[in-house]
Design a protein around this nucleic acid. Sequence first.
DNA 1: ATGAAAGCGCTAACAT
DNA 2: ATGTTAGCGCTTTCAT
Lengths: 340, 340
Amino acid sequence: MLDVAALAGVGVTTVSRVVNGKAGVSPETVERVRAAIERLDYRHNVHASILRRSDAKTATIGLVLEDVANPFMSALHRGVEDYARSRGVLVFAGSCDEDGRREQELVGALRARRVDGIILVPAAADHSYLLAEVRLGTAVVFVDRPARFLDADGVTSDNVGGARVAVEHLAAHGHQTIAHLGAALSIATAAERLRGFTDAHAALGLPVDPDVVRTGLATAEDAQEATTELVTGTSPPTAVFSAQNYFTIGAVKALRALGLHRSVAVVGFDDVVLADALEPAVTVVAQDPAGLGRTAAELLFRRLDGDVSPTRQVVLPVELLPRGSGEIRAPQSDGAGPRA
Amino acid sequence: MLDVAALAGVGVTTVSRVVNGKAGVSPETVERVRAAIERLDYRHNVHASILRRSDAKTATIGLVLEDVANPFMSALHRGVEDYARSRGVLVFAGSCDEDGRREQELVGALRARRVDGIILVPAAADHSYLLAEVRLGTAVVFVDRPARFLDADGVTSDNVGGARVAVEHLAAHGHQTIAHLGAALSIATAAERLRGFTDAHAALGLPVDPDVVRTGLATAEDAQEATTELVTGTSPPTAVFSAQNYFTIGAVKALRALGLHRSVAVVGFDDVVLADALEPAVTVVAQDPAGLGRTAAELLFRRLDGDVSPTRQVVLPVELLPRGSGEIRAPQSDGAGPRA
DNA sequence: ATGAAAGCGCTAACAT
DNA sequence: ATGTTAGCGCTTTCAT
């Protein structure tokens, strides 16, 4: 910057003003400085800038996802990015693979880099470790799942409601034994969806058959295996509720492999690419992942803009998309043939 | 850091040494400093550190993608992240949506933050603007597509070879009129795949019917529309080569809507989720997106480790995955019924 | 093994 | 409208 100042024949303050687009510099001077910057290939050093600046903003946020490559997560990522971009802010992204330790490592790396805020899809069981961070002024927003032991803004989908709707929809098509494919209950969304599943059964006066409720699944392969076991087992379900995008893929593949994709109904939580091109097309309860990301970013920047009101929890609605697989009727209970 | 030093009753130099894990501090002192850090909730300021340090590494890289939410790109992203993580480096990710201006903006933001290196899926038509950056020591690697007017490391898939294999495969199943669904030829991958498509035709002695070669597509909807037009047109192709993941989705949907999915063959470039669960399952030429990302990161870190050898271009192989849609035979040319 | 002091490149007062 | 100077929090000599 000194070099630029020297070449332009001005003081460093003036160069600083030009670089930061501040008023109070004559157009001719601006031009001279610009030229000098160009000539010297000057790169503004944000680190020095941040160090000295009073507001100390890095124009950088961190995004901790379960996995940047999971389509749900990457759509959420894009929602965050678009809003951040509109504010001139760059996004660090990282995956923690449902590992609380990895989450803390990532947050540590982000905090050392003095990000202005952090948006996270939490994996840890306890977020009180973020308390000091929040006190120091870092904005923190939780998305997809709530914070635990920490008072922070959050955005989630209506998991309970979505699962209820899925079960109600299947019940309305005559199903009484509905399998549940879910993740580990330590994951809040998995627990909530199971709750919606159970609540809906209770409200409908249907018993939940514990034999067809699977939790602790992690991959599409897990779900495929579980589905195969369930439908070839002793009390085969007539419908499957898959509580996550990967599980829907696994369930569909299992049923196809067994030739049961036209007789066993499926409703998935979360939309999946090509779900509407399958035979039958897959009925899903669709979330709005980009909306989750955008909303989380909005909450974050509101805090960065100085909002100190009490934390809030936003719940985004989900939408049932009937496409075929969820409208397969249960076989008549009197033993008559399948499909209405 | 001064506070920590005061509380621990040592000098700042010692604290610095402890924070950076340098030798030459007695174990007891280390313990005292650690305790003080804990008590005061001290956060190491990387910006100050970077400013003063001689090597000036930020342990940060930038990743410029076409779109973080595109499954191909996000898988690549994950490949980069995993390698970067093994080196303790954080990744800035951004989308430029095939917009060269946006690419330059992102690179500018990254360079102001003094990232150690940049990996990009380029959108710009000219990358000479990066020359100064490279000279200043920032490592730059291009992935998925080569650099233009800049000598830099690059990693791509075997686009020409993959397209050739696709056409040869279709030709081997009797197809003579193969449609091509491609993106704008300004995108290198699109141009290469079209070249492979054309080369294969030439090698097989098949004429390329210009009426069934579509380029300039951007979305699944574009591809769906184009497919519909082609197969309902005057010289309908008996097979479709879709040169990109989204286009395969569009082609499949169009054929299904017309009830032609069992009679018109499809081979897609790039794998797609659930492609193997469709009826018929979709034959694709699969790339290894995570491998592209990992390889790009490896090249980048090799440079950061001081490698000054000539730039290199790595080409990753692709693999034809026959699943059904690509093995549909062309109708007999004598007018007999379809399928062999 | 430890500390004092200089200075990285910049911005913010406070000048003029 | 522009320049001078102090100092942000750290690392790095160079001491001891």
